[in-house]
Amino acid sequence: TTLHFDLDGKKLQYTGVSEEIARLVEELKRRGVDLKEIVRILEELLK
């Protein structure tokens, strides 16, 4: 799965993300978590 974000005018793309992580990101968005925080979490998970 590939995730795309537009953060402060920067286009971020994460490829090869598992379905689980993609679902987690969608859930965080639904809960109103700040996009910067979501990206920070995502980068930690993908290390």
Rank of each mutant, 00 (worst) to 15 (best):
K10H: 13
G32F: 07
L12E: 04
T2K: 05
L28G: 02
E19C: 04
L24E: 15
H4M: 09
R23K: 15
I21H: 15
L35I: 15
L24M: 13
L28Y: 10
V25D: 00
D34H: 08
R31H: 10
I41L: 10
H4E: 15
H4S: 12
L46F: 06
V17N: 01
I41T: 12
E26S: 08
L7S: 03
L45V: 12
I38D: 00
F5K: 00
I38R: 02
T2L: 05
K36S: 11
G16W: 04
K47T: 10
I38F: 00
H4I: 14
S18Y: 02
E20F: 04
G9Y: 02
T1M: 15
A22M: 09
F5C: 01
R31N: 15
R40D: 10
G9V: 01
K29S: 13
K10A: 11
E26T: 11
T2F: 04
L24A: 14
F5T: 01
G32N: 12
V39G: 01
V25R: 00
G16P: 03
L45R: 07
K47D: 07
L28Q: 06
A22S: 13
Q13G: 04
I21R: 02
R31T: 11
G16M: 07
G32T: 03
E37D: 12
I38A: 02
L35T: 15
R31E: 15
G9T: 03
T2A: 06
T2W: 03
L45C: 15
D34N: 09
V39I: 14
D34I: 10
V39Q: 03
L12N: 02
S18D: 06
V33S: 05
T15S: 13
K36P: 09
T1S: 13
D6R: 01
T1A: 09
I38H: 00
I41V: 12
D6I: 07
E44S: 12
E27W: 05
T2N: 08
L35V: 14
L28M: 14
R30E: 11
T2Y: 04
L46G: 03
V25H: 02
Q13V: 15
K11N: 12
E19I: 13
T15R: 06
G9W: 02
V17S: 01
E43W: 02
T15K: 08
E19L: 09
I21E: 04
L42E: 00
V33N: 06
L12P: 01
L3P: 01
T2V: 09
Q13R: 05
L45S: 12
R23C: 12
K29V: 15
Y14T: 00
L42S: 00
K10S: 12
L42H: 00
T15V: 13
L12Q: 05
L12Y: 12
I21M: 10
E19T: 11
V33L: 11
G16Q: 11
D6M: 07
K11D: 13
L7D: 05
K10P: 03
L45W: 08
L35G: 09
Y14W: 06
K47M: 15
R40H: 11
L3T: 01
L45I: 09
E43M: 04
E37T: 07
T15E: 15
K11C: 06
K29W: 11
K36A: 11
K29F: 14
T2H: 07
E37Q: 09
L7K: 01
K10M: 14
E44W: 07
